[in-house]
């Protein structure tokens, strides 16, 4: 069964308290038993305790699938980008390096790419993903657009992201303030602002072509 069309994933990294509940709950998912697919990281450990949980954004035109030489990554009709098909994945890591959100993981022993599939065993039967079920601050929230508007009246959401000249639209939504009126998040702008703040940063890139 497909994931219901009116239910969406909403993520709000600002609400994340770094409790790791999502990380542990993720490994309970039946589609990747015992393996957590969530990345939970500090944004800048030296400056702040801010953490960010990363789940698959389920792109409408997934770069990971396009760069896969074995054609192992498929997007189902409900917009969920599934983990690599076990019979096809050749463990080349193209997807791991190409994903603009840094999502897929390479399981070297299994010679298999594994990633968040929005807990397809649960969402395809009307349940919430494991991470959204346990997240105490609801940084990871799964529900309808009406529900999220009621819960977060001062926020809205975007599902388009800019990386340089490339715009990627996704099934998963990210919360932004209502008054900001942004239609898409410029992800790489943060990269440029960091450089402006830190002239030493340019030194890092000198060795890179």
């Amino acid at each position: 069964m497909p994931v219901p069309a009116d239910r969406h994933f909403f993520i709000d990294p600002r609400r994340c308290i770094g409790c790791q509940s999502c990380v542990h709950a993720c490994s309970e998912c039946d589609t990747h038993k015992g393996h957590s697919m969530i990345h939970l990281e500090y944004v800048g450990r030296g400056d702040s305790p801010q953490t960010v949980p990363t789940i698959c954004m389920h792109c409408d035109s997934p770069t990971c699938a396009e760069v896969c030489p074995a054609d192992a990554i498929k997007r189902t009709e409900d917009g969920v980008v599934q983990s690599a098909r076990k019979a096809r994945c050749i463990a080349c890591s193209n997807c791991v390096l190409a994903c603009p959100f840094g999502v897929p993981k390479m399981n070297v022993g299994f010679e298999l790419m594994m990633k968040c599939d929005m807990c397809y065993d649960r969402t395809s039967v009307g349940l919430k993903p494991m991470c959204a079920t346990v997240c105490p601050s609801q940084a990871l929230c799964f529900g309808t657009e009406e529900e999220i508007r009621t819960l977060r009246p001062r926020s809205t959401f975007v599902h388009a992201f800019r990386f340089g000249q490339q715009t990627i639209s996704t099934k998963v939504r990210v919360m932004v303030p209502k008054e900001s009126e942004v239609l898409s998040l410029d992800v790489t702008a943060a990269l440029n602002e960091e450089e402006a703040k830190d002239p030493m940063a340019a030194m890092f890139t000198e060795g890179n072509p």
Binding site: D12, R14, E41, V43, V103, F161, V182, A189, A190
Partner: peptide, 23 residues
């Protein structure tokens, strides 16, 4: 990939008037 994950949080934080760590 690790920095890409952080950049999304920073980009979201910018919309709220600062870096994610400042919100």
């Amino acid at each position: 990939p690790r920095c890409r994950r952080s950049l999304l949080a920073l980009a979201q934080g910018r919309c709220f008037g600062g870096g994610a760590e400042e919100v």
